[in-house]
Structure formats: structure tokens, C-alpha cells
């Protein structure tokens, strides 16, 4: 059986697509799966930085598409997990260097060798987004509990449905329980009600994420971090396990909803 292709997208920039991609890739690799993550944000690559692999880049996605190297040559092996690979984006080109059919072809080539292929989509709804969703089996939409991010997520979900790639699965990132309690932030239930899609997970706000991102060691490797635990739970749900949503306030489960099985 070939790999499952997951695309992580959002519409709005800065909501945590790359952080989510890196953490899910590391989480699935730590569960023993063969994972390749692909940065499709051509011209603005940073998945390599978040994974701490920026010094190892020789070839990139555009080199593969334009035939300057084989796909295996562009795959950078992770330092900790031998079955985790990164295909970086080109930094000196733009989104038009790759087409949706190129992305489908690359994923088809990788599928027999991998268990999971995770694609980090650029922000926006233009060519880069279309490239990223073209080969997807599952699309994860990331949003923050902010009205502007939710509005963009709604637009993206509509486009995913229009491309007949739905239903999308939702991840709410950077939820701050203290602000929610004060009524200063949308609740997870508000976001789910507004977007009317399956909720796959909630990642709480955690200042350690910034530090881990800068160090190039995804937070999912920190067993004491709630954000890391949330990413691990999402990876397990993607894998078909039924894991209840975390208690973000420290007492029991605050939601009765369970994450959906997707595999």
C-alpha cells in the first residue's frame, strides 16, 4: 500500500502551517513510520529551518521537477529519525516553477517507498496553494482562534470543496485557555461552529514552540510540553487512533467531541 499524502494549509499566513507540518512529520516518524515532508512554499522556504536541516540542502524541489537531480538526491535525511526525510523548496524561484501535475507525479514516485508524505502549503489561494493540494489525500486546515484567520480558513475550505478534495480537517492552533476564559478569544466550539468541519485537534499556545522552532527541534520531541503532546495526539488521530481532545485547563476532558479517524 502506498503512502498517504497530507497537505497542511491555511489561507492566512503565520498561523502555524510549517510548525504543524514539522511536528506531525516528527511525530509520525517517532511512531516508526517512513515520512517525507515536502516544502511547497517556493521562494519562501522555512520548513528546513524548523526541522534544523537548513545546512544540508544540496538539491531542492525545483531541481527535481526540472530534472537536475533524482528525487532521492533531493531528500534530506533527518538527524534523529533515519526514516524521516525533507524535500526543501527552492528559495531563488517562484511558485510558477512547479505545476499541480508535477506535484502529483513526485508524490506518485514517492508513494511506494513511504508511509506518509506531508506537504507544507504556502499561504494564499493562488498557484502555490493549488500545487500543494493537487496530490492530497487528506487536507488539514490550520487556523488560529482569530476572526481573520477563521475567515481565511473558511475561504480555503470552500476552495478545497470546489476542487472536490474535501472534506477538510481542522486544527486550531495557539488557543489560549486563559484568554478564552476571560472571553477575549474565540472558543474552539465557536471556531468549529463557524467553519462546520471535522475538528482534528487543538494545539494550545506555548511559548516553548518559538524556542524549539528557532533551535530546529520540533516541540513534539518535548514530552512535557502541552503543545508537543497535542501534536502527537493529532498524529495518532491521523493514524486512525481515537484519542480524546486534551484538557487544556488541567481537569478532565473539556470537550466531549473525539478526534476523527482518517486512516
Amino acid at each position: 500500500m502506498g503512502a498517504k499524502v497530507i497537505t497542511v494549509t491555511s489561507g492566512k499566513g503565520g498561523v502555524g502551517k510549517t510548525t504543524t507540518t514539522a511536528n506531525l512529520a516528527v511525530a509520525l516518524a517517532s511512531l516508526g513510520y517512513k515520512v517525507t515532508c515536502m516544502d511547497s512554499d517556493i521562494g519562501l522556504r522555512n520548513l528546513d529551518v524548523v526541522l534544523g536541516l537548513e545546512n544540508r540542502i544540496v538539491y531542492d524541489l525545483v531541481d527535481v521537477v526540472e530534472g537536475r537531480c533524482r528525487i532521492r538526491q533531493a531528500m534530506i535525511k533527518d538527524k534523529k529519525f533515519p526514516e524521516l526525510y525533507l524535500i526543501p523548496a527552492a528559495q531563488t524561484r517562484d511558485k510558477s516553477a512547479v505545476s499541480p501535475s508535477d506535484m502529483i507525479r513526485l508524490c506518485e514516485e514517492l508513494k511506494p517507498e513511504m508511509d506518509w508524505i506531508i506537504i507544507d502549503s504556502p499561504a494564499g489561494i493562488e498557484r502555490g496553494f493549488k500545487n500543494a493540494i493537487a496530490p492530497a489525500d487528506v487536507i488539514l486546515v490550520i487556523t488560529n482562534p482569530e476572526v481573520s484567520a477563521v475567515r481565511d480558513a473558511d475561504r480555503i475550505i470552500g476552495l478545497i470543496e470546489a476542487e472536490q478534495k474535501g472534506p477538510a480537517h481542522l486544527i486550531i492552533n495557539r488557543l489560549n485557555p486563559a484568554l478564552v476564559k476571560k472571553g477575549d478569544m474565540l472558543t474552539a466550539e465557536d471556531v468549529v461552529n463557524l467553519l462546520a468541519v471535522d475538528l482534528l485537534g487543538i494545539v494550545p499556545e506555548d511559548e516553548n514552540v518559538v524556542a524549539s522552532t528557532n533551535r530546529g527541534t520540533p516541540i513534539v520531541l518535548d514530552a512535557h510540553s502541552k503543545a508537543g503532546q497535542a501534536f502527537m495526539n493529532i498524529a495518532k488521530r491521523l493514524n486512525g487512533e481515537e484519542i480524546p481532545l486534551m484538557n487544556l485547563e488541567g481537569k478532565g476532558n473539556i470537550f466531549s467531541i473525539f478526534g476523527k479517524r482518517t486512516k
Binding site: D154, R155, G158
Partner: peptide, 19 residues
């Protein structure tokens, strides 16, 4: 339901079963 970015532009009555 109609999601953000959708435009419905009609001369006749419009009835929507959804949000």
C-alpha cells in the same frame, strides 16, 4: 452552506438551505 468568497448574483428569488 456558502463559504467565504462565494458570490450569488440572481435576478429571481434566492432560497438557501444552509448558512
Amino acid at each position: 452552506s456558502l463559504r467565504s468568497g462565494t458570490l450569488v448574483d440572481e435576478a429571481c428569488d434566492v432560497v438557501i438551505f444552509g448558512d
